[in-house]
Write a protein that binds this DNA or RNA. Structure first.
Lengths: 71, 71
DNA sequence: TAGTAGTGGGGTAATTGGGGGT
DNA sequence: CATGTCCCAATTACCCCACTAC
């Protein structure tokens, strides 16, 4: 099966998206990224983007490893 | 502009919201979540969020299945 | 190029969680 | 057994302004 997960197909979410899904403030999502609880991808301007797959896993209550200390 | 286009996007309520709707204290709502009477979704910080659809059903007097033993 | 909305950073007030007792 | 209240620690929400994204 050698099915490769194309990184180019990885959908990214904005802080507002994640904040809406968790019913929290966008600032709180930023804190989670700073705390290393979620994977944060930074734009060239300094803004954060989050992986849709990871956020969905978090909402499902699944512990997600992959976010160590990036921010 | 962070436009969500997911039919599976569930609306969540804060403990204060549910407490106000039921005319009880937020602590009591927490008890219900611990007892598995209502579905509880936790934020990454440990705070609980509740499904709006389920709370509405409960307020309507409908028996809701889906909360077994989560907390 | 300009305009609007979203985001980041810092700081402060309010809410929440947990245990314990009524 | 279920609910309301007190304690403290942690988390979250809202205020400002400057910059980025589209």
């Amino acid at each position: 099966m050698a099915t490769i997960n194309s990184p180019e197909t990885e959908q990214l979410l904005t802080p507002a998206e994640v904040a809406t899904m968790f019913r929290v403030d966008p600032k709180t999502v930023t804190r989670w990224a700073q705390a290393g609880k979620i994977t944060s991808i930074r734009t060239l301007g300094g803004h954060r983007r989050y992986r849709a797959a990871e956020i969905k896993a978090l909402l499902a209550g699944l512990p997600v490893d992959g976010a160590r200390s990036q921010d």
